[in-house]
Design a protein around this nucleic acid. Structure first.
Length: 224
DNA sequence: ACCCAGGGTCATA
DNA sequence: TATGACCATGGG
């Protein structure tokens, strides 16, 4: 088992490297909290390029507010998000989200709610699971939450930070990491952005050592 | 013609 | 609790 302190140092240097080589603060291109949430739902099992097209349509028609989304007939919403795939499913999910936000008391209220209850609120929305909820917490509300997605779990397992069994389960992976991550002072946004970018660049074949990781991420700088 | 992508839900066993 | 089908588009 890897010592906590060593793990913290490792991730700290990874984040440091990521922030120097990527525009990690711009990795998730969104102009508002709600836009991050919309993107988080639309990107489920889909490439970002397809999502980007859909968001441009929504933005052009000024539909990137919870109120505007609610006012829209579902059929209309489906047409607008078509490029993101699973249109009927995702249109419904966007409506559920918009409704839930209003019922909770709006974005302002969400922003000043503690992370745990906020996460529970997000998970109660039909169509938001653990990964989407954590991405929203991390990128829309700037909470120190680790997004234990497929890329992260593969990498963590290969690095020996978590067991093969834990890597198959989202919650187990996240819990293991959170314990080890305690006090490491990492940027969760930078870490997630870097892991995803790196995972994509390597087509899912993640390197097994930290040196390889750092070397590889430098070969794929952030591009718009 | 396949395969998959920055998942989640629902139905089975 | 753990898999598998399903959603459905666009790019390789």
């Amino acid at each position: 088992m890897i010592a906590t302190r060593e793990f913290g140092r490792t991730l700290y240097s990874v984040c440091d490297e990521l922030m120097q080589n990527y525009a990690v603060d711009q990795w998730w291109p969104a102009r508002s909290r709600f836009e991050v949430m919309v993107g988080a739902i639309l990107v489920q099992n889909t490439r970002w390029a397809n999502v980007d097209a859909a968001i441009k349509v929504l933005r052009a028609r000024q539909c990137l507010t919870p109120q505007a989304v609610q006012a829209l007939p579902v059929e209309r919403l489906q047409v607008m998000v078509r490029s993101a795939g699973c249109q009927s499913v995702k249109a419904r999910r966007l409506r559920s989200l918009a409704l839930a936000i209003d019922e909770f008391g709006g974005l302002r209220r969400m922003a000043c709610t503690d992370t745990e209850p906020l996460r529970a609120m997000l998970l109660s929305v039909h169509g938001i699971g653990p990964e989407t909820a954590d991405a929203i917490l991390c990128f829309a509300f700037d909470r120190p939450v680790f997004v234990a997605d497929q890329y992260a779990r593969r990498w963590l397992q290969r690095m020996g930070f978590i067991s093969a069994r834990a890597s198959k389960n989202y919650t187990h992976s996240q819990r293991s990491v959170n314990v080890l991550l305690n006090g490491a002072g990492v940027s969760h946004q930078a870490l997630h952005a870097g892991i995803v970018l790196h995972g994509q660049a390597r087509c899912g074949q993640l390197p097994q050592c930290l040196d390889c990781f750092l070397r590889e991420i430098c070969k794929y700088p952030y591009k718009t």
